[in-house]
Every structure is written in C-alpha cells, then in structure tokens.
Amino acid sequence: MKLPLLGDPEAILDRGLEGVDHNFVTGKLEELVKWSRARSCWPATFGLACCAIEMMATGGAHYDLARYGMEVFRASPRQADLMIVAGRVSQKMAPILRRIYDQMMEPKWVISMGVCASSGGMFNNYAIVQGVDQIVPVDVYAPGCPPGPETLMHAILTLHEKITSGELTQRREETGAGANLSVSQQDGQTSTGVVIRT
C-alpha cells in the first residue's frame, strides 16, 4: 500500500509534524492492517548456531534493525509474528522448533536463515534436519554461511513487501504452505575496507 502524501515533504523535513497538512490518513482498513503488520513484525528469538550471532549483530548498533520496527526480539513465541530460524536444526531440536512454531499466533511468518536451516548445508549427515521446510512452512530463504546482516535485512524487507501487498497472507490461507521465496546474498559488498571513526 502506498500511503497518501501527508504534505509537502520539504516542509515536513523543515518543521517536523507542524509541516503536515492534515493530521489524519484515509485508507482501507485492510490496507492499514497489512501496513501495520509489516511495520511491527516482531521476531521470536530462535538463535541456534552461527547465524544467531549474525542475527544479533543485525539487531546491534551498526545495522540497527530498529529502523524496521523489529528491534523487539520476543522471548515468548506467543508475542512474536516472525520466526527467524537462525542456524542448523538437529534431530533433537526439530520437535521443539515445531512446538514453538505452533505456539505463535497467526498470522506468522518464517525466515530460514542460512544454508543449514534451508537445506542442511555442508552437514549432510545423520544429525541435521536437511531443511527446516520439512518441519515448518518457510516464507523466505536467506542464503549464506552465515548470511551477513545485509542479507538478513534483505530477506526481511522482501518479507515486508509481501506482507504489505497482501500476497503472503492470501497464499497461506489457501494452501497452508510458505511462500518459498529465495533472495540473493548481499554481503561483502563494501569497497571501503576498514572504516573506523574515532
């Protein structure tokens, strides 16, 4: 949904809220609900392995996940909309993962972060579930081992887009399956090398 322009953008930049022409927005309720769902998508803390460290780094000062209204990682699955499966899922963890997914309220989404969660990755063996999509429906797959914060944010933004457009909730209602979107890896694209500001 494209929100109606609230006023002259330059006036808003200069004078803040005073620059807003009118203080109410009109729109369809359905659109507003989708918009607000996308912009306060609270993730459940589901850090498993290496990817969890990058997930925490995404929430840290430098990458600042708070920009997307997502800095509140909820410890309780009942308060979360999004499960970021960050890391390899072992056979012992799989039932617990499913239980936590079942405890989350609808509408809920799943991002499979990293190759281990997506496909088992390099650990093609007895201990690791070869793809978390065998247990829960996955909406977005983020590649990388581990995916850097840029890739994770790319996956999250892709998900937001689909939530805002309503595509995702509709499809889930029909089949119960995830959206199965794959994004491309975005890390390692800094050309500046080490930048340290004192």
Binding site: C50, I53, E54, M56, A57, G60, A61, H62, C145, P146, G148, D187, G188, G193, V194, V195, I196
Partner: peptide, 22 residues
C-alpha cells in the same frame, strides 16, 4: 556498545579473510 566495538574487529577480519565469521 559491545556490538559497536565488535563490528570494528569483524570488519578487520573481513578485510583479511574475506568473511566476518567462519
């Protein structure tokens, strides 16, 4: 704060090894 400093160290590791982790 901890993460701010860690990013500095990680950036250096990334410059040398090509990766932030692993």
């Amino acid at each position: 704060y901890g993460w701010r400093e860690r990013e500095e160290a990680l950036r250096l590791l990334e410059t040398i090894t090509g990766l932030r982790m692993n």
